[in-house]
Amino acid sequence: MTNYILQRAIAMILTLFAITTITFFLMHAIPGGPFTREKPLEPAIVAALNEKYHLDDPLFKQYTDYVGDLLKGDFGPSFKFRGRTVNELIGGGFPITARIGLLAVLITVLLSIPMGIIAAIRQSKWEDYSLMFAATVGVTVPGFVMASVLIYVFCVKLGWFPVIWKTDATGWLSVSQYVLPMLALSGYSMSFITRLMRASMLDVIGQDYIRTARAKGLSEIRVILEHALKNAILPVVTYLGPMIAALITGSFVIEKMFTIPGIGYQYVDSIGNRDYTMIMGSTIFYAAILIFLNFIVDIVYGFIDPRIKLGNIKEV
């Protein structure tokens, strides 16, 4: 097990390094540099700016400096918001994004696993059909459409929520304001996991050991929850990594639509503003979070599925 964790950890560090390098050189491949505007600035100003942000150093030195700063946890200054650092921007938005994301993960797992199980044990009954219909709609409708519908129905027509989301003085949203973003964010994953859980549950229920458990006279509930669930839930655990990725991409859209000042909103904003350090920093930050969470999922998976060949990843 230690070997497995170590191997994954090394892979994680290598990947992070690769990501930082790719991101850095891609961002510096933009022709003209960050100060190219519609109206050209005076050459002297550009030179001064370049000097201030060390853009006149040789590229490789810039790279080593950047990586060195990253290792100290410093993402550098924002190009757009003078006097603010990327760290401040990310630090300000991340707690809100993380809170909505966690709520979305929680509601997804708590609702979709039972729904998948119900659909499986009531296969070809109305419960199954209605759940699968909803889940199919959920995976074919883009997130921003789902969010638009929620906003239209609950904010515009019913007026249950304000149309403009606002944080209070402490920088948090009020409790009721989490409801719609959370729903919009979890819609896709919830549908996906419900389908996944149903398919995998049906697969497991057909196996011999479940027949044995039934033959022993166990109640159906115990057969499902004690015997079938343990194996049926494995594919869902594997999907947790991609799901977190989907939630993060979702947060770009959802935060923009609900005007929530999280990092997703800032990231989309920085793309529009061409705030290059912010784009670079956010990309690396997002990638690091995702890779770290994937690492955790890998380890959890190694613990719960003893069949996994430790350190021997030769999947087909």
């Binding site: 892979a11 290598l14 790719i22 933009i30 022709p31 003209g32 993060i248 793309i271 990309t283 997002y286």
Partner: peptide
């Protein structure tokens, strides 16, 4: 390595880098 990178970020990044 590529598989563990969140590719959507690179779709965005490549688009930003090369659009001009």
């Amino acid at each position: 390595i590529l598989y563990s990178i969140p590719l959507i970020l690179y779709v965005i990044l490549l688009k930003v880098v090369f659009q001009d």
